Amino acid sequence: MPMVCAMSDQARTAPSAEAMEALARAALARIPEPFAGHLSDIVLLVEEFADDDTLAAMEMEPYELTGLYHGSPVGEKSAFDGMRLPDRIHLYRQPLLAEWCETGVDLGDLIRHVVVHEVGHHFGLSDDDMHALEDSV
């Protein structure tokens, strides 16, 4: 049975992982140059929750982590790195849905915020730089 979020005078059915991925891809597509040119190889994954090892490493509870960047920031990459997994942005569906229900924020805006934040980690940006990037998306 799909999750239903009851907020104020309306109830909303939670979107599927595929629908959330589409929102995340739309957010990625709106990221401006010069950043956009470096995002073609990023793998985007929507999972229900972060795995136990990730949560333990981050010292977080399952519903606290809405997204995570795995990889090396662009400025730290080298041709001498050898074979490595592609950079990945993980979005965690259940924590995102819980925040959506709790805050009433538009889900597309929430996903855009998390995607831009994780893209910021890809570029090694500061929080202030991430906010400026988000304002431009």
Rank of each mutant, 00 (worst) to 15 (best):
L65E: 01
T13M: 14
V116F: 02
V74T: 07
A6R: 11
E76K: 14
A79D: 12
C101P: 05
F80A: 15
D53A: 15
G67N: 05
A14I: 06
K77F: 00
T54N: 00
G67E: 02
G37D: 05
L85H: 03
E99M: 14
M60T: 08
R88I: 07
R88Y: 02
D52T: 12
P15V: 02
Y69P: 05
R12I: 12
H117C: 03
A26T: 14
H121A: 03
S136A: 15
M58C: 08
V43K: 02
F80G: 08
V4S: 05
F123A: 10
I89K: 00
M7P: 00
P32N: 11
V114C: 09
S126C: 07
D81E: 14
E76Y: 07
E47Q: 13
V105F: 09
V137D: 02
R112H: 07
D53I: 05
M60C: 15
M58V: 11
Q10S: 14
A11C: 13
R88Q: 11
V4G: 00
L39Y: 02
L125Y: 03
A56S: 13
A6L: 11
M7K: 10
M7D: 06
M58K: 14
I89D: 01
F123Y: 15
D128I: 06
R30G: 05
E61C: 01
E33L: 06
E64Y: 04
P73R: 15
F123D: 06
A56L: 13
D135K: 13
R25F: 00
D129K: 10
L97Y: 01
S72V: 14
A29Y: 06
T103L: 09
E64P: 01
P62D: 03
G71S: 03
H90L: 10
V4T: 14
A132F: 08
E102P: 02
F80I: 09
Q10L: 11
A79V: 09
G104E: 11
E48I: 00
S16M: 00
D41F: 09
E59I: 08
G120K: 02
E64H: 10
D9T: 14
A50K: 03
S40P: 01
I89H: 01
R88P: 01
A26Y: 04
S8W: 05
A24Y: 05
D127Q: 11
G104I: 12
G108I: 09
L107H: 02
S72E: 10
E61Y: 03
D51I: 03
L65N: 02
A17C: 04
E76F: 12
A14T: 04
L44A: 06
P15K: 02
H131L: 08
L68Y: 06
A50V: 03
V43M: 03
D53E: 15
D128S: 12
A50Q: 04
E102M: 12
D109A: 12
P15G: 06
V137Q: 09
E47R: 12
H90S: 10
D52Q: 13
G104R: 12
L107C: 06
S126R: 08
R112K: 15
P34W: 05
V46E: 00
L23T: 04
E47Y: 00
Y69S: 01
E61L: 14
V119C: 03
A36F: 05
M130F: 00
V119Q: 01
M20H: 01
L125T: 04
E61F: 03
L23I: 08
P86M: 04
Y69V: 02
D109V: 11
D41C: 08
R84N: 04
A17S: 13
Y63V: 09
S8L: 12
F80V: 10
L23P: 07
P86Y: 08
S78L: 09
L125G: 05
E18I: 07
